[in-house]
Design a binder for these strands. Structure first.
Lengths: 184, 184
DNA sequence: CATGGTTTGTACTGATCGGTAAAGTCTGTA
DNA sequence: TACAGACTTTACCGATCAGTACAAACCATG
């Protein structure tokens, strides 16, 4: 009756896509079961904490991805300008040029924000902090760097909202081009 | 058993606040009943279409507010710089300096986007268009005006996301100051 | 082939969802 | 005072929700 094919780690990206598409409340166990192909038993076997644990795992997965691909290079690269350019490209890729939504941003506006407040705050605080360090290394004064980093992160999130609202990915692409030009 | 005190129009701002706080899906009829003090019968008397009609009414109410207070002045004012400054102040007030969320933006990121796609698109398209006209009147070239308007609207939305995520209204205030400085 | 822990399918629970039905109470008009 | 329509209360509907229980089936060990 059972096949031991799937691993917990393999399910998380699928869950991420589900939360992205349906939101936390909209991602019912029925939907999750359909999209993952897993029954309730399997889901609760891998995530005894239920939906909340699934979402936590997704947020942690996202955090790891951004830490490895974006935050750490920004903080530690010897070539900060290259790291900033790489961030812009990575972000554009990650959000599929505006077709994809930021789960963390969506959670922040949702009424589930309080439940995941820590992870949401970390995501944005780390991003702002890492980018500010990168900008300092390219010659910006500390205050100015933090300000510009905050503006940039907000701009990316706003562009995702606007692109989705106007149903026009080009909005996001234009925003990323403006951002890259201003940062470098 | 009944009192004819409430008017439909009086309920809409309450509904707006509910959708702001709970989102569309999170705003159950139980919550709506509690917060409005109205029973299911009354709610369906005023809004035969149920939750969907309530949300539509809220979106229309918001559209009217922005049209009167922001879009039209931007498009028609003889003093465009003053209209832009007024927009910044009105926006800051409207969003309670970052403590309040944009319902339309939240809907755009939610999985209910498709249901209200028209109203959501209108809200942002009208804003961008009106601001672009205002910016043209202050001397910007048409292309540049549209670009700057789009960036500004995205910036405001992003600042709301970030302020809520970091639980720090000052993020929004700083964004609005940057915006005002750049526009004028 | 046997065994035992791991993984899975299915049926179920109680709660809550959005929405409906109908009987009741109020108020303006004449 | 009588009536009509506006408004409200309450109980209820089927559907769906997240989560649980448990037996069946798997697979890596012996």
């Amino acid at each position: 009756m059972a096949k031991t094919i799937t691993e917990r780690a393999d399910i998380i990206p699928v869950l991420a896509e589900i939360f992205r598409e349906y939101g936390f409340e909209g991602a019912s166990l029925a939907v999750i079961g359909d999209k993952t192909g897993l029954g309730r038993g399997s889901l609760y076997h891998f995530f005894p904490g239920g939906k909340e644990e699934m979402a936590t795992a997704v947020l942690h997965h996202i955090d790891t991805w951004f830490e490895d691909r974006i935050y750490r290079p920004l903080r530690e690269s010897d070539d900060p300008a290259a790291a900033i350019g790489a961030m812009c490209r990575a972000v554009s890729d990650y959000f599929h040029s505006g077709c994809r939504i930021c789960v963390v941003g969506a959670f922040a506006l949702d009424n589930v924000r309080d439940r995941f407040a820590g992870a949401i705050l970390d995501y944005f605080a780390k991003w702002r902090h890492a980018l500010a360090i990168g900008l300092q290394k390219t010659g910006h004064a500390p205050d100015q760097a933090i300000d510009l980093a905050e503006e940039t992160v907000a701009n990316i999130q706003g562009a995702l909202v606007l692109a989705r609202a106007l149903d026009d990915p080009a909005v996001f692409e234009r925003a990323m081009q403006r951002i890259e030009k201003r940062l470098l």
